[in-house]
């Protein structure tokens, strides 16, 4: 009955062609990532050991482990997270639930988007001026973490606001019609139903700062400091800066060492992502609509 005409055949051929083309683009994109990971594992894995993770660098950082840097990075990210979570969520709450739709709100939204594009070295200098000098925190975990927090705040706000906007408007209206205030609506309906998106978004965005070097270099991270920080007012080593130092500043570093450090750094970022994804799946299973 039905015979493929010339036109049908031509459509089919273009279809196949485009599928091939797009598929190849995708592979081309994945290739560098796969290569990076492959090389890192190939060259870095031999260096890795429990001892490497848990001992301090020795011999002018040409031997030994990375323990102080590892702990320092965890400090930096944790304090940044603690700082940006409440501020980011509060700002996003205001923008999503309270802000009237007027020019001021639109200007603030525009500013947030633009802030996300400010280079990290600019944030670093701001951090020096504001936290190290003006607030007199000195070069410390606190100053460095606050700089990181400021840097991630725009993306934290955007991801949090998106999580809140995903809660259907009908839920809010139902609450308002019952005589709930905006805050009661937020507390009983909006937050409980967006908290998974909020937390995973924040964790994801802040964990990206694990690899940042510039913002912490002048504000709190030290080249070499073989002690663990005792409080947020101490300086600390950090993985990203350590990697930078041993790859460019220190002579006679064995070839495998930087690869090992880089591998641990990437593993840290990926495991933060994994935690946030696992967390999201756990919460989504309890999702309610």
């Amino acid at each position: 009955m039905f015979e493929a005409t010339e036109i049908n055949m031509r459509h089919r051929r273009t279809e196949v062609l485009f599928r091939l083309l797009f598929g190849m683009m995708t592979i081309l994109l994945i290739l560098p990532v796969a290569l990076i990971l492959g090389i890192l594992i190939y060259k870095g894995a031999p260096v890795l050991s429990l001892d490497f993770l848990l001992s301090e660098p020795t011999n002018g950082m040409t031997a030994g482990g990375i323990f102080p840097a590892l702990v320092g990075t965890i400090w930096l990210v944790a304090v940044a997270l603690i700082a940006s979570l409440p501020v980011g969520v509060a700002a996003a709450l205001y923008l999503s639930e309270y802000a009237p739709n007027n020019w001021l709100t639109r200007a603030i939204n525009l500013a947030i988007i633009n802030l996300a594009g400010v280079p990290s070295i600019v944030h670093a200098l701001f951090g020096v001026g504001a936290f190290v000098l003006f607030f007199k925190f000195g070069t410390s975990i606190l100053a460095a973490s606050l700089t990181l927090a400021i840097m991630t705040l725009p993306v934290v706000i955007v991801s949090t606001r998106e999580a809140m906007q995903a809660v259907p408007q009908a839920f809010r209206e139902a609450c308002w019609n019952m005589g709930a205030t905006r805050w009661q609506t937020i507390r009983r309906v909006v937050l409980p139903n967006s908290i998974s998106g909020i937390l995973t978004g924040v964790i994801l965005e802040v964990s990206r700062t694990v690899g940042e070097t510039a913002p912490i270099m002048f504000t709190g991270a030290a080249f070499f400091l073989p002690f663990l920080p005792q409080s947020v007012f101490d300086q600390t080593m950090a993985m990203s800066l350590h990697l930078f130092v041993i790859s460019t500043q220190v002579p006679n570093v064995p070839e495998g060492l930087p690869y090992g450090v880089a591998l641990v750094l990437i593993a840290m970022v990926l495991s933060m992502n994994a935690i946030s994804i696992a967390f999201r799946m756990y919460l989504r299973n309890k999702k309610k609509w």
Binding site: A170, F171, A180, V189, P192
Partner: peptide, 27 residues
Amino acid sequence: YALRRRIGVVFPLPVGLPMSVYDNVAL
């Protein structure tokens, strides 16, 4: 808000809030 509490509203499409049946009515 006190005014709205004296006025009940039912929408065209049912909006069961994402909480238990009990909590819906107790809200």
